[in-house]
Nucleic acid binder design. Structure first.
Length: 543
RNA sequence: AGGGGUGUAGCCAAGCGGUAAGGCAUCAGACUUUGACUCUGACACUCGUAGGUUCAAAUCCUGCCACCCCUGCCA
């Protein structure tokens, strides 16, 4: 059963025998890091290959050497691997440069391409406008022989960058500007990450892409909406050259790219943040890059779940961030062990507890197999500062003067007194344990509504916890994205956690009970564990 | 009269001539030793809009409106 309009097209193509097997490709330009928008494309392309027993290649669209780099090639593969997609092969557009050159020669020989001496400005001028047709290049009617000679000399490095181009000869009065004799090859004396110094002319995307698809056997070439206007030229290239190399007659299908509120996918913007050191790198947990999201602690499975749940359509939309977070929580809820962590500690002294005792708590009540661990409770513990209020709001179930609360997995305690500093800030709460109220063995007769987390001060580890807010400041809409960067988008607090956290590995995720989900960051060392907040728990009280 | 797309709830989205799925968010309530999770209920008499065709229209036709994309030797 088809899940979306692309799958409907594919199923029809299979049914009618238009294709016998399905092949897709994921075609990034290696000029930056992948972000969550790419995850959607990855899910569509690899998802289709998987569903219809077809193939999916990674293909780097590396036709512009001035922007591309090996660094990105490696990073892209890592990210795809992290998401768990298995590719059937890796290709580079640059692997086909020889063949593309032949295709261009073929077009010249058919009278369908010509070498143009116009510079960029002249081409732009003669292209016409949205409402006015363009003017034909004065070089449009050169002889095939002259074109062949000139193109060869372009290849041989006889011209400087921009001096000449090869253009398709189509229709300067087409209402579709992409058909107004588009440039298909340009002179570019640049080092290429793959072909090194071999070429000084490079094909344009619009010319290269359909050839790549056809020679690889791609049946369905899936891209984003802004390429809809390019489709006629895509079809033109496939119809007019390279037939002896074609393995398929691919069709281009466009879908709407992913937008998420408060997430900026713009490569230029991300690059500027990284280069300016305003963020920690491409993998900063605030960024929508896949490596950033990974460091933030979002599970790969949750990302894929999200992509599958938002659907694939042709209408532009913006998904609320809460949808993504909901997918992340769904995953973490069943997969994360619970642990107690205190982000803003308040000292509590249990006046009637002299010897430490052992408490047993569940690691994850929602796991398929529930396991437990032992933790100690001794005279001095920490609780969350917000779990004690001198003047509690209505329906406050937590600790208050002369009030009761249960320590998770341990005793009910009663607040007997508290100490404050000169500013009236509470510095210590003195409590007594209610006898016979131990968790699971309570015959004290005391009923409490509130249960709070706690950490034994004699058996804990120090934590540095990062929380993340909006990357951009909301007002000042007239400023550039870069200028709107919110320096408060990352905040740090120092807290304490259960000692077992000492055994965690970088990337391990936990639920800090009643607080949120957290992941151990690579910046941790023996003395200090650094955690990133993945997503907070929902809170129907403090909302 | 430039061309190409798209309009279904606060957000995403099914629907393909037979009388508006589902999810997120929100709001109630139940359960709860996480104010989490889970569960239950509420949430579009109407599909951008105005006409038309039809026994029957979100689905077909026509006009209008709104939004997005296109004038790189970027992808």
């Amino acid at each position: 059963m088809a899940n979306n309009f692309i799958e409907q097209i594919i199923e029809k193509d299979i049914e009618t025998g238009k294709v016998s097997s399905v092949q897709t490709r994921f075609p990034p330009e290696p000029n930056g890091y992948l972000h969550i928008g790419h995850a959607k494309s990855l899910c569509i392309n690899f998802g289709i290959a998987d569903k219809y027993n077809g193939k999916c290649y990674i293909r780097y669209d590396d036709t512009n050497p001035t922007k591309e780099d090996e660094e990105y090639v490696k990073a892209i593969e890592q990210d795809i691997q992290w998401l768990g997609f298995k590719w059937d092969g890796i290709r580079f557009a640059s692997d086909y440069f020889d063949m593309m050159f032949d295709c261009a020669v073929e077009l010249i020989n058919k009278g369908l391409a010509f070498v143009c001496d116009c510079n960029a400005e002249e081409i732009k001028l003669n292209r016409g406008s949205l409402t006015q047709p363009g003017i034909e290049s004065p070089y449009r009617n050169r002889s095939i022989k002259e074109n062949l000679d000139l193109f060869m000399r372009m290849k041989n490095g006889e011209f400087t960058d921009g001096e000449k181009t090869l253009r398709a000869k189509i229709d300067m009065s087409s209402p579709n500007i992409n058909m107004r004799d588009p440039v298909i090859y340009r002179v570019l004396h640049a080092h290429h990450h793959n072909t090194k110094g071999k070429w000084c002319i490079y094909p344009m995307y619009d010319f290269a892409h359909p050839i790549e698809d056809a020679v690889e056997g791609t049946t369905h070439s899936i891209c984003t909406l802004e390429f809809e206007d390019h489709r006629p030229f895509y079809d033109w290239v496939i119809a007019n050259c390279g037939h002896s190399h074609h393995k398929s007659k691919p069709q281009q299908i466009e879908f709407a790219r992913l937008n998420i509120t408060n997430m900026i996918m713009s490569k230029r913007f991300l690059k500027s943040l990284v280069n300016s050191k305003l963020v920690m790198g491409w993998d900063d947990p605030r960024l929508p890059t896949l490596c950033g999201i990974r460091r933030r602690g979002y599970p790969a499975e949750a990302i894929k779940d999200f992509c599958n749940r938002i659907g694939v359509v042709k209408s532009n939309s913006e998904v609320e961030e809460s949808y993504l977070q909901s997918c992340v929580r769904d995953n973490l809820n069943v997969n994360c062990d619970r642990v107690m962590g205190i982000l803003n500690p308040l000292k509590v002294v249990l006046t009637n507890l002299d010897e430490p005792i052992l408490c047993q708590v569940e690691n994850n009540p929602n796991a398929t197999e529930v396991t437990t661990r032992n933790i100690t409770l001794s005279k001095q513990i920490y609780i969350e500062r917000s779990d004690f209020e001198l003047v509690p709001p209505p329906k406050y179930y937590r600790l208050k003067p002369d009030g009761y609360v249960r320590l998770k997995g341990a005793y009910i305690i009663h607040c007997d007194s508290y100490l404050t500093d000169d500013k009236g800030e509470v510095t210590q709460v003195n409590c007594s344990i209610v006898p016979n109220s131990m968790s699971g063995n309570d015959n004290s007769g005391v009923k409490v509504k509130g249960v709070i987390q706690w950490v034994d001060s004699n058996n804990c580890v120090d934590l540095k916890v990062r929380k993340f807010g909006k990357l951009l400041i909301e007002d000042n809409q007239d400023l550039t994205l870069f200028e709107r960067f919110n320096p408060a988008s990352m905040t740090e607090v120092h807290g304490v956690g259960e000692r077992c956290l000492r055994d965690a590995q970088v990337g391990d995720r936990f639920q800090f009970m009643r607080t949120g989900y957290f992941v151990l960051d690579q910046d941790s060392d023996e003395n200090l564990l650094v955690f990133n907040e993945i997503v907070p728990l929902k809170d129907s009280f403090n909302k």
